[in-house]
């Protein structure tokens, strides 16, 4: 009897140790698998985001092309006909000449607008002359009597991957728009700096600032700021909001100029 108790205890103990080891081993295995799954999901999400952004750019390009080629052409043809009409009218009904002239100037304005919109939709300067020129153009266009936008950048900018160029440009566009629209700023500085294996883009304004947490709390607001984050997510970039109510905002974008995981081809035009 006493021996049975000893043997039984030994058997139970072996079972107990087996259970403990099994739980420890199995749990670690489960966690490892979960980690792999999470990584995979993250990758998939990034790929999806990249594809969405790419589709957006494609769509813009298509709209720009349609605007330019179809509407633009139609407008030019219309202008030609109007000119002919004008000449006929001058002979027969001099009273209507003013009306024709007015229509012509309206048409001219429309043509200019279509051209501007189609140019703004596709960052042609960016594709032809690179990020620095595109930002210069952006600063120039945004400057007027009330705001002064200035670009400062280090002399030797490394050539960036086209995808980085486009992302940085779109982000700069959004940030400058924000500074003009919301901040009531007088001076805006775009600062482009190269860093060891990366680039730092800062947009600094002297406006009224804002409370980032409050804006991100509201799901419907801050779409522009959220877009910046998702764009950066695709290229493993990083944004730092150095903002506060009552003083100018400083927003820094950091990207690595390395080959990223997710490939997005941007076709040159």
């Amino acid at each position: 009897m006493k021996l049975y108790i000893a043997v039984g205890t030994a058997v139970l103990l072996v079972m107990a140790i087996f259970i403990i080891v099994f739980v420890a081993y199995y749990q670690q295995k489960q966690i490892r698998q979960q980690l792999i799954l999470k990584e995979w999901q993250e990758k998939y999400r990034k790929g999806l985001l990249a594809a969405t952004l790419q589709a957006q750019e494609h769509e813009r390009r298509r709209i720009a092309q349609d605007l330019h080629d179809e509407i633009g052409t139609m407008l030019s043809v219309t202008k030609l006909s109007l000119n002919q009409l004008g000449r006929t009218v001058e002979h027969n009904d001099p009273g209507s000449t003013v009306l024709v002239q007015k229509t012509r100037s309206l048409l001219d304005e429309t043509i200019a607008n279509v051209r501007r919109i189609s140019r703004d939709l596709v960052p042609t300067t960016l594709e032809r002359f690179g990020l620095v020129s595109a930002l210069e153009e952006l600063a120039e266009k945004a400057s007027n009597g009330e705001v002064h936008v200035e670009l400062s950048c280090s002399d030797k900018m490394p050539t960036l991957l086209p995808q980085l160029d486009l992302t940085l440009f779109r982000i700069a566009q959004e940030l400058i728009n924000n500074a003009i629209k919301h901040a009531n700023a007088e001076n805006i500085i775009i600062d482009l700096h190269c860093q060891p294996n990366g680039v730092l883009l800062s947009v600094i304004d002297d406006g009224r600032g804002f409370d980032l947490d409050e804006i991100l709390k509201d799901k419907k607001r801050g779409l522009g700021l959220r877009n910046i984050e998702s764009r950066l997510n695709v290229i493993d970039g990083h944004v730092t909001f150095d903002v506060e109510e009552g003083r100018g905002s400083r927003i820094h974008i950091q990207v690595k100029n390395l080959k990223p995981e997710v490939e997005v081809e941007v076709e040159a035009v």
Partner: peptide, 27 residues
């Protein structure tokens, strides 16, 4: 799967201790 590393989880060790102690003495 509520812990990342089970070997750094205190209640895992406590539970193992209880299991070993209980199975060792129950008979």
């Amino acid at each position: 799967m509520k812990v990342k590393n089970i070997l750094k989880h205190s209640l895992f060790w406590v539970s193992s201790g209880i299991i070993i102690h209980s199975t060792g003495t129950i008979l």
